[in-house]
Design a binder for these strands. Sequence first.
DNA 1: TAGATTGTTAATCGATTAACAATC
DNA 2: TAGATTGTTAATCGATTAACAATC
Lengths: 216, 216
Amino acid sequence: MVRVKVPDVVVRRLVNYLRILKEKEASPEDYISSAELAALAGVNAAQVRKDLALFGEFGKQGVGYPVLMLKQELVEILGAGEPVSVSIFGVGELGTALARYLTTRHRFDKDYPFHVKALFDVNPKKIGTTVGGVKVSLVTEVSELVKAHDVKVGIITVPPEAAQEVCDVAVRAGIQAFLNFAPVKLKVPEGILVKYQDVTSDLQELTFFLRQRMER
Amino acid sequence: MVRVKVPDVVVRRLVNYLRILKEKEASPEDYISSAELAALAGVNAAQVRKDLALFGEFGKQGVGYPVLMLKQELVEILGAGEPVSVSIFGVGELGTALARYLTTRHRFDKDYPFHVKALFDVNPKKIGTTVGGVKVSLVTEVSELVKAHDVKVGIITVPPEAAQEVCDVAVRAGIQAFLNFAPVKLKVPEGILVKYQDVTSDLQELTFFLRQRMER
DNA sequence: TAGATTGTTAATCGATTAACAATC
DNA sequence: TAGATTGTTAATCGATTAACAATC
């Protein structure tokens, strides 16, 4: 289906378009123009049309895009309709918060695709307890559980020193993509995806622009 | 000092270079080449040199960049040396996790620049309690506390429905930059900075590329 | 000095925006 | 039909990479 190489930035915008459309109550006759969607997303209208045109012709000249249909197309394109099994490594403060957030989301929105299937930690006190209804297991069980639940994505919330090791174990167990909250660059085999998330870096970026703004 | 307009991507990389250098034990005679730093950061060597050259000439031909000096320069450039007061809006699971993370970081690393000065919530049960040693206050006190502590950055961890309102209040109180964990686009006056952070979007992006990879 | 690596210019690559014919 | 908006091509803009003279 998708033969073109889709740049990161485009995918990020598509995710955003979908979020915006989901917030819209719409009947089957409702249309939205690229200009309207662009304004809501804070981007250029030509960019919206180009982003969508990468995947097909969804609009109608003189009218715009049918809201419900476009929403459905975006779900299709992004694969946001099919469930994805997720595992969280490190049940500390942040891991717990994420586990609860994701399980709660799922409880209230049946279409929410991300299912937390396993939690891992090394602290013996935590093993066997549950968070958001999911049991905390020992990292030695990763391989078994990841295979049993066909876990595709791992969320890493262990301390930075432990991140690489945990990642290695997870990769061996068959996890294909990571969302890494530990502030370290992970070395992974070709083809394994890693997305980084780091509050300190975010704050530092904001600080830079704040200071720069003040100097003028 | 900085007169050029610095692109977002450059700042992100600078933050990364600094993190890498901080992990390095170094003596005053240690040098690092652009090639070495580039390899660690996963970017091109020419890019490292160009990023740094935006702010001055820090290297020595035939040798490289003095590690300690470069680290210091980056701290200077990013403003990572001066304390920045931060406030967290929404003391739920995620807000609590972030509050604890930031206060703990600060307790163990005196150079850590981000200080949590105030926490806000609307839940009467939480008001007056403390998290990481910081008191939870009612949102009506934002103005007073933000001014008293000269808070520059707000972290938004309230539910999506409440995010815009909280943001408005914070802007009126004088907050200049936001790290927004709520999955909604915030409308802010010209000049106020917003950085978005959303686990669901991150997972969706990863999912897209996972699926795309499998289709080939 | 010879070798290595910077700082910077020039070339390349890719992404964004403008413009407009096609068409609803 | 007249007006509006798409899909797409062409123009612009900006960021990345290659190349190399300067120099430690």
